[in-house]
């Protein structure tokens, strides 16, 4: 009889978790970058020399999409899904899914807020170019929590990989 958890096999849960991490991180980054870029484009349209100083602010919310992508790739690598061996017990698969949730939701929310913070910080650069370093700090603070979520997800996936190896 096939091993299922809530009607889904272990590999299905693992792929769903990895997929959600990549999707939500990407959505958050897209929204965050759009929010920051709208304001930055307005500033650059009036003062093109500030482009270089503003570009890091626009790019910053993009990291959450990368974290989601990393989580998804780790799921594929840690649990041998790339090799086609998809023999994951359903209970472990569900736990892999849960392990992907911290990075998924935190990246979604933190990327949006980071985009808003970056848009506000761009106002600092608009007024005083020399404060561009200071302006970078505020959105960088938001990044911390996305990084912590990625670390938590990686640790959880590592534990689950070890557990699966011992089975």
């Amino acid at each position: 009889m096939k091993d299922l958890f809530w009607g889904m096999a272990g590999a299905d849960w693992a792929l769903l978790g990895g997929g959600i991490a990549a999707i939500l991180g990407g959505i958050g980054s897209a929204i965050g970058i759009t929010a920051a870029s709208s304001a930055i484009a307005g500033i650059v349209s009036e003062d093109g020399e500030k482009f270089g100083k503003l570009l890091p602010l626009a790019a910053m919310p993009g990291t959450q999409g990368i974290y989601g992508f990393i989580a998804a790739v780790l799921v594929l690598i840690f649990f041998n899904l790339l090799s086609g061996e998809i023999d994951i017990p359903a209970a472990i698969g569900f736990k892999i899914f849960l392990a992907c949730m911290p990075v998924s939701f935190l990246c979604l929310v933190s990327a949006i807020y980071q985009g808003l913070t970056a848009a506000a910080a761009a106002g600092i650069v608009a007024r005083r170019s020399e404060d561009s370093g200071k302006a970078l700090i505020f959105p960088a603070l938001v990044e911390t929590y996305a990084v912590l979520a990625l670390i938590v997800t990686i640790l959880m996936l590592t534990v689950l990989q070890t557990a699966l190896t011992k089975m």
């Binding site: 929010a35 304001a39 930055i40 307005g42 500033i43 003062d47 949006i112 985009g115 608009a126 007024r127």
Partner: peptide, 24 residues
């Protein structure tokens, strides 16, 4: 509130960005 803030940031973002320079 987050939806409205994001909407405003995107919808008015370009104009607000311009204003941040112009008001100087």
């Amino acid at each position: 509130p987050l939806f409205k803030t994001v909407y405003d940031a995107v919808y008015y973002g370009f104009a607000v960005g311009k204003v941040r320079v112009l008001e100087t």
